[in-house]
Structures are given as structure tokens and as C-alpha cells.
Amino acid sequence: MTAALIWVLLTVVAEFALLSLNLFGDAATKQGQFIDDAFILLMALAIPVFTFVVTMIGYVVIKFRADGDELEDAAPVRTHKKWVGSWLIWTTLLTIVVIIYPGYVGVQELRETHEEEADLTVNVTGRRWQWSYEYEGRAVSLFAKDDMLILPNDSLIRFYVTSEDQDVIHSFWIPAFRMKIDAVPGLTTKFDVNTTKIGNFNDDVNFRVQCAELCGRDHSLMFTRVKVVEPAEFEQWIADQAA
């Protein structure tokens, strides 16, 4: 009984703490917001499990401690149908829940836009140790390492990602978008994002493209600064570049 109370109490406190904390700022895409929500939900589900384990260990260590020199045996309970049964049911239920949501639903969510026509398509190529970008149909490409990747807000952006043929694997990751996909020589991969937030590397380091697959010496430095701007500003920038 006491143990159950401690468990409930710990769980409530931890859940409140979780919901009041701001773990990682707001994501800058629709997909990223889903991922953040999924993360919070999984935390919320994990907390009672964890507090259960902690309560049990703590309670047992205090309550059932027998430190005398005499060896004293406990009552030999070998199993307990009801406990085992309800444990199996609970763990199975939890598993099914996370498989469906955020699991299966999440996969569908991230693919939802795949059939739609993108507002902007960017072809990304990795090579040791920098990225290059080609704005499809806009006659603009970025090759220099310190170029800034400018992207429009409120748009469906599709990235096609690859790596040069004799190069190695990289991974195209924009932390603020929460999305990443590997850049593999000989293979073109892709992901879609719906941008939802204006932002800029200088204010938030997560507005950067960071290589996330070890690629040798300068892997840490293989990043590009990112800036998300209003669509009109973006078009203006494209026009300036093309000119």
C-alpha cells in the first residue's frame, strides 16, 4: 500500500516536471513538431514504468533488508499467476500503444506529403567535408562552404540527398527541422518538410545542416548555416542570386 502511494506520488511529480520543462525549444517544421510531441508522449509513458522500478527497488531495500549474520530464508514464492498475467497484459498493451501511436501513425505522418508537389525542391550533395545545394528550377546553386542555405517559410520543401560517387556516407541533418537522412554514394534519398518558423543560425545553432554520419577528419565541421525567411524574401533572394 505504502509502495503504491509512493509510486503514484513519484509519477505525478515526474509527469508535472516533464510537462513544465521545455526540453528542446520548438521545432521549425510540421514534421518536427510531430516528432517532439512523440518524444514527450513516450516520456510520459516511460515515467510510470521507471518510477515503478525505482519505487520497488527503494521500498524493498528498506523494508525487506535482513542484515544479520544468520542466513534466513524467505517464504518460497516461486511464481504468482495473477502478477505474471497482469504484468504480461500491461506490457503488451503499452507495446501495442506505442506501435500504433506514435509508431505507425508517425511513419504515415512523415510520408503524408510524398505525393504532393513540393513548393521547393533542393538537390543536396555531400562530399568530404562540405555540402552543395542546387535549387531545382531556380538556376541557383550553392557551392561555397560558408554559403548560407536560405529556405522559404510556410512551404513544402523536398530535399533529394546524395553523396559523390567516390566519396563516403554522410548524413543530411537539420536539427531545427528534426529530420535527417543519409547521403549515400550511388543512391538518392529524400525527405519532405513543411516549414513553420522563421529562424536563423545566428540566433539558434539548430538552424544548421550538420553531417551526422562519421565521414573522417572534418566530420565535426561539415555544416552549413541555415536561414528560413518569408516566401517573398526568399523569392527576392533567388532573383538576386540568379541575376
Binding site: V60, A66, A74, T95, G103, Y104
Partner: peptide
Amino acid sequence: MVLTELISIPTGIIFLSALGTVWRSKLRL
């Protein structure tokens, strides 16, 4: 994803066993 998450069920049993064993035992720390 589905197959991976299914592993939590047998893994949970290990926890059940550990916690079930210490419950009402005579723990020598």
C-alpha cells in the same frame, strides 16, 4: 519498428522476475 518494440515484452519479464524475487524476501545487501 514493430518487431523491435515487441522485444520490450520479453525484456519486461526479466524485470518482473527481478522485482518479484526481491519482493517479500530477506535481502542481504
